[in-house]
Design a protein around this nucleic acid. Structure first.
Lengths: 140, 140
DNA sequence: CTGTGTGCAAACTCTTTGCATAAGT
DNA sequence: ACTTATGCAAAGAGTTTGCACACAG
């Protein structure tokens, strides 16, 4: 699950119409080199600093949003103020561990959503988010 | 859907082990008198003030959390910092309108979750949240 | 009376913004 | 060079906390 496939951050950014600055390339490579990831801005920021890629938190936020707009990331709402960004943009669902606050993909095909409900007049479904919350065994 | 059934806030609170103070009774009645509701703390606060039930925002937050702990409300994570509280605590799913930020119940039975995935070792599913995001027709 | 709840304002967390400096083409 | 991105620190939204006063039992 963590075959560090090699990623050309520069190309990825250019393709998305973003200027491949040092910071953006670094962040893109951190994000996309390992398999699918679910990070918060703060986590990514710390990770970048640990890897000697000095970036400011503001830039991390900017970059995450730019990548999201470019369709390379997906935002996942869990709760509280924390926003998670998921490198897997395909249709899939998540496990959320309430114990350590981590997010994980649910292998696709494992959950089937039957019939979707009919949306109200004049609206259409943009996305269906499914979050399966986990707790330790036996915790009420 | 909005038959203002009459609610005995006092009894409801006592049953939940909460002291029926003026503010709590007011809030409980605002919350539970109409049909199912989805409110944020701020919305409920404004509504209380409009109805001549002076309460501080801090008390609204306290009360909402106490009612949630007592199992009378359910928190719904949508995104951003806003926390919604749902008066319907049964297992059901939501529509979220990205246009006006409102939450609505999806009639139960309309969505079927097929097989739930097996949770990772030592964990169990505490809840499954399904959020169907809506946009206006034709908005990409 | 006694203890718990309330209100206020200040603290806190996560996120966004403004503006001078630095980097990309 | 000219433009766009970055970094910093300050502002912002939503939520929480601490402490004096008020209310419920």
């Amino acid at each position: 699950m963590s075959e560090h496939r090699h990623i050309d951050g520069r190309k990825m950014l250019c393709d998305a119409g973003l200027r491949p600055t040092r910071q953006r390339v670094s962040l893109a490579e951190l994000l996309f080199a390992p398999g699918d990831r679910h990070v918060t801005a703060e986590q990514l920021h710390e990770e970048a600093l640990r890897c000697d890629m000095p970036v400011s938190l503001a830039t991390v936020y900017n970059t995450l949003h730019q990548l999201t707009q470019a369709g390379l990331l997906r935002e996942v709402a869990v709760e509280g103020c924390k926003t998670y960004f998921d490198t897997n943009t395909s249709n899939h669902f998540h496990f959320f561990s309430e114990i350590d606050g981590t997010l994980e993909d649910i292998p696709s095909g494992t959950i089937n959503i039957g019939d979707l409900p009919t949306p109200p007049e004049g609206m259409e479904i943009s996305r269906v988010d499914v979050l399966v919350r986990l707790v330790g065994r036996d915790t009420t």
